[in-house]
Structure formats: C-alpha cells, structure tokens
Design a protein around this nucleic acid. Structure first.
Lengths: 165, 165
DNA sequence: CTCCGTGCAAAGAGTTTGCAAACAT
DNA sequence: ATGTTTGCAAACTCTTTGCACGGAG
C-alpha cells in the first residue's frame, strides 16, 4: 500500500516527519527502534525534527496499529512495524540485538492457561533475555585470546550511537 | 529463617525500615508491591520512611535475591518475595491484580527455542494481560444492570490508595 | 566509636503536554 | 482558509544520588 494512503486511512496527514519515520521502520535493517534511535537516525539525514514530535508520531502509529510498541526490560520502549505475524522476542543483554520467534505450542498453552484461570486474554508478552549467538562467540574468543584488553569487537548495529542508560 | 539473620547474611544491618519492608512482603496478602505501594503501607503504620529509602532497600533486597523485581507493562516496577518456585504472571489490566502460574511445557519450549537460536538463555519473562475472573464478572454484571452509574464494585485490594499513574 | 543507613532535596532518564508558529489539504 | 501538526520548552513520573545527620553493631 502507498504510504500516504496508509496514513490517511488512519486520519493522519502525510507530513514529512511522519513519512520519514514510517519509511525508517519499513526500510531500516534494524526492526526495533526506540524514540531516541529514530531521532538520531533522522538527524543524520538532516531532518530537523523534535524529539517530542517523534514520541507523538510513534504513539499515533501505535494507536493506528501501524507500529507495535514493545517494552523490554528496562525503561525505554521500542517500536516495530506491524506487518508480520505475531511473534515473541529474544533480546541480547549484551548487544541489545532483538531476534523474533514464534512457537505455536507456547501460544496454545497460554490460551489454555488463561482459560483455566477464567482470565480473558487480551495481550501477552514473552521475552527471553540472554546472550545471542554472536555475543557468545565473541565472549568465548575473548576469554581464549585473554589479554586483548576488551576489543569491544563491534556488534552493535546502531554503531556510533552511545549505548544510552 | 529469622528475619534479622536473613538480612545479616546479605551484609545488611537490621534496621527498622528494612525489617518493616521485609515483613510487609512476607505477610501482606498482596504479593506484588511497587515502591509507592510499600511507601503508603508504611505511612499507614506511622512509619516515617522516605521514598528514597524504600527504593534503596528494594534494590538491595533484589540484589540479595530476597525479592524479585518485575516490570509489567507500563513504567512502575513491582517486587515480590523470592520464596516460591519460578513462575510467570497474569496481570489484570482493569484492577491490576496479579496471578501467578507455572507451565512446564512452556518452560521447556523456551529452553528448546533458545538452544535452536544459539541463544544462551539467562532470564525470561512471560506476562499475560487481560481481564481477571472478577473483572469479567463485574463488567458483565454492569452491562446487564445497565444504568447503575458505574458502581466501581470494589475489587482493588489496595483499596483507598488512588490508582496512581 | 565507627561506619552504615537514613531522610531530604535535588538530579536524572524517558516521556508527555501547552503553546504559538508552520503546514497540509 | 482552517484545522492539523510541529518544534520548543516546560512539566511529569518514576527512580537514583549527594549530603549531613542519626542509629546499629
């Protein structure tokens, strides 16, 4: 669907900040972005947007179901585009990378358990926290090569951006 | 185990605020409390504690594994005593009540999925959000008895405390 | 007596809101 | 033209921290 149309369907005018933000989520290779991530990426493109606007737009997009808001451990919320099937997440506690997964067995158990408790399920969130494949490998390499003084061998996709908090 | 002993084992002196807070978690019929919940409950007992102290104590208890910190949807963290087996939560989006559940099938799938992704699992959190049995019943009663002008029929265990946020 | 722990006030991080100017339609 | 949207600054919420006093061991 055309992007401007997608916006109009939600009663939102097709403004530059909104178009750019949506574009980011559709084309960035990082699917999960925080308000600040979006802010910095737009500044990089010399877009003069305020952080407040980004929060507002993200909120509107989430209400319009264009984006999904996710709250992993910690304080910052991240957003992802709502185009794929429902899924849960594995979050790397070292590089913050987010992987998605889906398991119908777990989904079914959840539904069943809710029913057993007389609970009317509306939403659920499952997140696994740990070390991703890359970080396990890197950590292992480091402990072997011992005294390389923490090379901090890359990995963060949002490269330069200081790991806030 | 004696409470003061439990504290000393963690290198914490047995002070009044710490004793009272621990006592709260051990004897309150509400297992999940936020810093502010604790604050208000202590004030009710005419305990003159600062909110900052509560945050500090909760943090120390969480580090000492006496309490577990949980972050459900939204911004406030809640704590519960770490005395029972691992479990996950169903959180009522209407009355904020928290129910606990455990399902070994889900646990096993999680472990398996992590392994398949080369992910070194360290922690995980699963929360179901929806309406608890009581709220479903109350909502249903209301829509039948129609115009009773929102009786707000009870339910919140933390009674008088205004629903912060 | 000696630190550890406390209350208070102030700082911090992330997010939201009020407002006048700028923009989409 | 007109109702929306924006950027800025200030407000807000939850949490953490600095500091001097007070209490535990």
């Amino acid at each position: 669907m055309e992007i401007p149309q997608q916006l109009r369907d939600s009663g939102l005018k097709a403004t530059l900040p909104r178009l750019k933000i949506l574009e980011l989520f559709q084309h960035s290779n990082v699917r999960h972005l925080s308000a600040e991530d979006v802010y910095r990426l737009l500044l990089k493109e010399n877009l003069d947007v305020g952080l407040a606007t980004i929060y507002r737009v993200l909120m509107q997009f989430a209400e319009a179901k264009i984006l999904l808001r996710r709250q992993f451990e910690g304080d910052r919320a991240v957003f992802e585009i709502n185009a794929t099937e429902h899924h849960d997440h594995m979050v790397c506690v070292e590089c913050d990378k987010v992987e998605e997964f889906f398991d119908s067995a777990i989904e079914e158990r959840q539904t069943l358990l809710a029913k057993q408790h007389g609970f009317k399920l509306r939403d659920h969130s499952l997140s696994l926290y740990g070390l991703c494949k890359d970080c396990v490998a890197r950590d292992h390499a480091q402990s072997s090569a011992s005294r390389l003084q923490q090379p901090h061998l890359a990995a963060r996709m949002m490269s330069k951006l200081p790991k806030h908090k």
